[in-house]
Amino acid sequence: MRELIDANLDGSLTTSMLADGCGMSPGHFNYAFKQKLGQSPYQFLIAQRLARAKALMLSTQLPLVEIAAACGFAAQTHFNKRFVAANGMPPGM
């Protein structure tokens, strides 16, 4: 499952795709995922996207808008909002 998540951080991944990959219904997958990891698949995916964004910010000179798109955020404003919520500061600092 981890490989599927890492390969699809660009925004194309759905809970149904993850559930299918594990041979479960989406409802059962969501429940089992939260029981095992303590957070929903969506929360986990956002955390992974933010981690990828941080790595890109440190290792490239890409503009934030391109980093946001590469990490599956619909817009830079969505990325900024999630980044601030997770880190307490905007990504440009």
Rank of each mutant, 00 (worst) to 15 (best):
M1S: 14
L4R: 12
L4P: 01
I5G: 04
I5N: 03
N8H: 15
L13K: 02
L13G: 13
T15A: 09
T15E: 11
S16C: 04
S16R: 07
M17K: 12
A19C: 04
A19G: 03
C22E: 08
G23I: 08
S25W: 00
P26I: 09
H28S: 15
Y31D: 12
Y31F: 07
K34E: 15
K34V: 14
Q35A: 06
K36R: 15
K36I: 07
Y42E: 14
Q43K: 13
I46W: 03
I46E: 03
I46S: 03
R49F: 05
A53S: 07
A55E: 11
M57Y: 02
L58K: 12
S59L: 04
S59E: 14
T60Q: 08
Q61N: 13
L62E: 13
L64Q: 03
L64M: 03
V65L: 10
A68L: 03
A69L: 09
C71F: 09
F73G: 08
F73Q: 08
A75W: 13
Q76V: 11
T77L: 06
F79C: 10
F79D: 07
N80E: 14
K81L: 09
K81V: 10
K81G: 01
F83W: 15
V84E: 11
A85T: 02
A86E: 11
N87E: 13
N87S: 12
G88W: 13
M89T: 12
P90S: 13
M93D: 11
M93G: 05
